[in-house]
Write a protein that binds this DNA or RNA. Structure first.
Lengths: 336, 336
DNA sequence: CTCGGTCTGTATAACGTTATAGAGCGAAGG
DNA sequence: CCTTCGCTCTATAACGTTATACAGACCGAG
């Protein structure tokens, strides 16, 4: 650990600058000296001190991915993809939580840890366009997910409107007519689920089905417990739903559990569909029909776009990138 | 971002050293100058450059937690606890994956990223005591989990023998007599599940039940798919089991799914118990009886012990720390 | 008073790297 | 034969901290 550039320089009988050039290939070095330096490096087992390099270069080689929580397997799988992509490009990815807390999201976006990171991939829940617009930090940023649209940053997100419509079309094709939506979040300046909700209402309209406000349930979070609570609320209705379109898989799984507790069977009595395609839904009872976004591509794209900005590659104006998704039909809403 | 110590010093009309002392409190500073410096800091919005600080101090303030995979919610929850503990103590926690790959585990233990981290918390699957003993890296390390015992490092792990015995006692008290174990890993120099397996056999013996080798199933991984495959294998036996003790919750959940596919009911036909208490098991159908280790404490303790070593606090010889666990009885193996 | 000792503060040398300016030195061009 | 390159390489100044050595001022003790 204690072996530095200076040691190599002395050993090989050259200047520190030359060693640096051998290591970084920034300027050409003669064949003979290069070999001598390389040999010294191998013999002494030299690795560059990153703190020093970064102090000098102004970059750290670390990028951050800020997600609401790790306990949601969707984010765990997304983080997985992003970490792999970053590692492949020689960067280290740091995971940050926001706990779905607005203040923490603001803090992260505004340069918390800016000293340590070269760039940020932000998956926000609460922030809106204005929050993002008033950001002061210079750190490059890429947005991921549904919360913020049309901000002056690259944005990676699936076509939520199309995804929701497809999920709804599937339920409607099954002959369902009272379809509930669990997971709406209608608050001032906050629109994480607006597109999915719009896909829901538009699909109803397209099928000539009435929109019943009672069938749209807001939740405070995005977990199994929220889904279960939402479902319980729906079951108190005079006319309970015959299908559920959930904002995500965890909510769907919670809803299934609540239905089970209520003595109702899925899919016989109620069909359920989610979004995310987390692994859990491939083993749950029943298995979960869902919209499967290409998580690997989301993570990879977010990292690539961010590195383009960091490394100053010509990237053009901020754009929105839409990875593909597909409907995965399983037991909770089987083919008609 | 460009505001440095020097700027503050100039603004406050003092030396850089004094500013440093105000920031770090390393040496006393007079009340009047302290106030003046603090005001300059607030006005200019100064934050220390971490690369420079770490170059000088020789530490980075980053510790790593190396886990097999993030997709296993147990590790996600553990990581969560560790990150919170590290943040609280002023450190940043970096997550590293080993993919359950032996070479990657060796790489991580042997100082991959040693330049960037002050210490390492390693949750290994494949490494054994000899691997760890031949480690060359000087970076402080703390071990977490079942793989390695009696290595010269602090080790945080629940009492797996006691935990397994308690799980088994519960199944036996239910009247089960053919209890299977899914998730054994019997390989040369590799003993992740040895203690849990021993708890299984000892509990059988203590209850006067015969040990049937056919009822011990090895798996290649620790996921839902492995559990399902293991269960399917057990169901081909002439005398299938009437209960399953799974190495962890994911395996248990996979086993439940396989039982369901086979037309068997849990817990009526077969009781199932796991270890980990992941959130999923509180909503699955049926909900999962499990051994719940204190994950928050595991994460916190691992971080604290590591920081003790890093910061040179007197910590004594390497020791083993055993956070508590408790049996959580749910539907898959309800109270008798 | 003088001498040691505490208190505050300053000046400056590291930490290990990279970027910049320039030095030597043959070869090519006039 | 003297320039003027082009090619390697060197010397050295940063980057922003913190640690060390030291300098005054003040105070109580002798």
């Amino acid at each position: 650990m204690a072996v530095s550039l200076k040691d190599i320089a002395r050993r090989a009988g050259v200047s520190q600058a030359t060693v640096s050039n051998v290591v970084n290939g920034y300027r050409p070095v003669g064949e003979a000296t290069r070999a001598r330096v390389q040999q010294a490096i191998d013999e002494l087992g030299y690795t560059p001190n990153l703190s020093a390099r970064h102090l000098r270069r102004g970059r750290t080689g670390i990028i951050a991915l800020a997600i609401p929580e790790l306990n949601n397997p969707y984010f765990a799988e997304l983080a997985d993809a992003a970490i792999r992509a970053a590692t492949k490009r020689g960067y280290t990815l740091l995971l940050d939580y926001t706990d779905g807390d607005r203040d923490k999201e603001l803090l992260v976006a505004d340069g918390f840890r800016a000293q340590i990171i070269d760039g940020l991939i932000l998956s926000a829940v609460h922030l809106n366009r204005d929050d993002i617009a008033s950001r002061t930090s210079e750190t490059p940023m890429v947005l991921v997910g549904e919360a913020i649209y049309h901000a002056p940053y690259d944005h990676v997100v699936i076509d939520n409107l199309a995804a929701s419509r497809e999920a709804m079309r599937h339920l409607i094709a099954l002959g369902r007519r009272r379809i509930a939506f669990i997971g709406a979040h209608i608050e001032a300046n906050r629109a994480p689920s607006l597109l999915r909700l719009r896909g829901y209402t538009e699909a109803l309209a397209a099928a000539g089905l009435p929109f019943d406000p009672d069938l749209t349930v807001t939740t405070s979070g995005f977990g199994r417990g929220d889904g279960a609570a939402g479902m319980r609320a729906l079951l108190t209705l005079a006319q309970p739903p015959d299908a559920v379109f959930a904002f995500n898989d965890l909510i769907a799984l919670g809803a299934i559990r609540a239905l089970h507790d209520h003595g109702l069977r899925v899919p016989d009595d109620v069909s359920v569909i989610g979004i995310d395609d987390v692994e859990e839904g491939r083993f749950s009872i029943p298995t979960l029909t869902t919209i499967s976004p290409d998580k690997e591509m989301i993570g990879r794209l977010a990292v690539e776009k961010l590195l383009d900005r960091i490394e100053g590659r010509p990237a053009g104006p901020p754009a929105e990138f839409q990875p593909p998704f597909r409907l995965v039909v399983r037991e909770s809403a089987p083919a008609a």
